[in-house]
Nucleic acid binder design. Structure first.
Lengths: 337, 337
DNA sequence: CTGTTAGCGCATTCAG
DNA sequence: CTGAATGCGCTAACAG
């Protein structure tokens, strides 16, 4: 059997409470006794049982993270960074993968994190009801995809500004016929697709370009979806000379579709993405870069702050910088059309 | 305060043990009482505290997963699939990100999972000492990257066969000068780099091609590393006409390097990768496909089996199928040389 | 079928 | 500075 606190106490000849205090660095233990305890604990390979200390102390030292599709670069990277911060602070990370519709429903129906976490980081935007459910947990809440929900600390970017930069870049190159591959705006209650679309429309308007609903196609935030969307755009009577994809993954799908159609990028058509996916450099994709790992790390840090000073820290909102990264997929339209 | 088991018991007018039995689906509770308990629990929003039940029951209902770099597609995808299986079975997933060297050291030094998990899934290969440390936990162990360590259930692929297929493909196309971008074999104690290298050498030998150490370059399993490696290969006096990259990420880096050097793929040089990364199709990369998500799911399932029938199930070894996927990055050498 | 009795292993009072 | 007592919320025998 694994050693318990009493084994250590017995070995050193002190009481369990003293061992508890000593090992947690609490004041009120003489240096001599403390060091003997630390040594004995190491000898016996003792670690406090999380279950027992949680039960007794009322804290789980665990942070829950709910994310859709960890396999996607964006979420995986955020998760990765958050884990580093949390584990360095002695917190465990409990992962809930809420990609499949059904998993998500089950999660909010049963709320398995109840009594299991001290704080929660959501990498997806809860809708009203879900946000309410999470708030009922009574723990600090944060999210990294930028929906300003009450009670949540949010770490995000200015989606509107990013999308504006992307579309303006195309306009400045001389494009007048600009398509958009959008992210599904329905199920995830995400603000990004909405904001990015609005930016697209704003920039077109400000450039005096009439928008054409046929040039807006949904790409579902996936490579496959992007490819389908691009194919659809090419079938439009008067196809676009440039396309703004709301994510790099969709942009890559678009590039694939263009290759299959034997169209050259950027000569025949320009493409700009969003995210600066790790592989975007490889394919030379012009895109809007956002600090992905930093968002995860920062969200985790803010959560830890709230844990340290309960009540003192108000849920805040931090906006991370973005920037246009020029690479090889954008150029002026063929004949200045 | 959140409702406790006694609140439910009191509400229904039964004892706490009956509530416990009823809610966990144990036999020995009348249908009538059970349904009243279920209803009351729902009313009160009661969920059992994990800490308390773990402490009392001796099981944590949690599986630990240790992984390097969750942000990488391969690991993220495995993790994703494993989580689905585990959460469907009522288990939580505790994630430990052991990418940074220092995090890894700390993990094995302190072994924070002690008393915290019922089983452990390792997405990295522990070396001897680490394997021993993990075995000392006394819980079912599994790994998905194929190192046959004693005490571990391993789910993997036949790396040798996969690499052989890749290199043979190049040989069959007529290439005689074949380079390899290898994965770092040092720190991670991975068998994949070793096996894949061996396959490379075997196939060259069987084709009567003398191997040239200058054609073996390390790519560190990253895009950047692959790019550097390719650049290095191009600087060799008599550069290769084809390259086998031990991962798709490195292959993509190689493609980038080739593009920068204005070399055409596959006309000037052929490239074959390994993994079938989600974006390989986008860049048209010829590669060896392996079922990534399935490996995570299967490993999780095997762990659950061992949890269900303690002792009965021996750690096993399952090998998943691989296949060569022909796309656009391989062709015969320019002048049949 | 149900209630009673004991802990699970620790953190936290309160004394000393 | 240290020890003894108490309880965190639940599960697992054991009775009945």
């Amino acid at each position: 059997m694994a050693a318990s606190i009493n084994d250590v106490a017995q070995a050193v000849g002190v009481s369990a409470s003293t061992v508890s205090r000593a090992l947690r660095g609490k004041a009120g233990v003489s240096d001599d006794v403390r060091s003997r305890i630390v040594e004995a604990a190491a000898d016996l390979g003792y670690v406090a049982s999380r279950s027992a200390s949680s039960l007794a102390g009322g804290r789980t030292f665990t942070v829950g993270v709910i994310a859709p599709y960890v396999g996607r670069w964006f979420f995986g990277t955020v998760l990765d960074a958050a884990e580093d911060v949390l584990s360095a602070a002695g917190y465990d990370l409990l992962l809930y993968n809420l990609g499949p519709r059904e998993a998500r429903k089950r999660f909010f129906a049963e709320l398995p994190v109840r009594k299991r976490v001290d704080a929660l980081l959501s990498l997806l935007i809860p809708d009203e009801a879900e946000g309410l459910a999470l708030r009922s947990l009574g723990v600090p809440l944060a999210t990294t995809v930028g929906a300003p929900r009450p009670g949540f600390t949010v770490v995000g970017i200015d989606d509107r500004a990013g999308a504006q930069a992307a579309v303006r870049h195309l306009v400045n190159l001389g494009h007048r016929r600009i398509g958009m591959i959008a992210g599904a705006s329905g199920p995830l209650h995400w603000t990004a697709p909405v904001e990015r679309r609005r930016a697209y429309l704003d920039v077109l308007a400000e450039a005096g370009i009439a928008c054409d609903p046929a040039l807006e196609v949904d790409g579902d935030y996936t490579v496959q979806g992007g490819q389908r969307a691009m194919t659809q755009l090419l079938a439009v009577p008067n196809p676009p000379t440039a396309v703004f994809a709301q994510s790099d993954e969709m942009a890559m799908g678009a590039l694939r579709a263009l290759r299959l159609h034997r169209l050259k990028v950027p000569e025949d058509i320009s493409v700009v993405g969003f995210d600066d996916h790790e592989l975007s450099e490889v394919v030379g994709l012009t895109t809007i870069a956002q600090p992905v790992a930093e968002q995860g790390a920062e969200a985790a840090r803010l959560l830890l702050n709230q844990l340290d000073e309960p009540g003192a820290v108000r849920p805040g909102h931090v906006t991370m910088p973005i920037r246009l990264v020029l690479r090889d997929t954008t150029a002026p339209p063929r004949n200045g059309r």
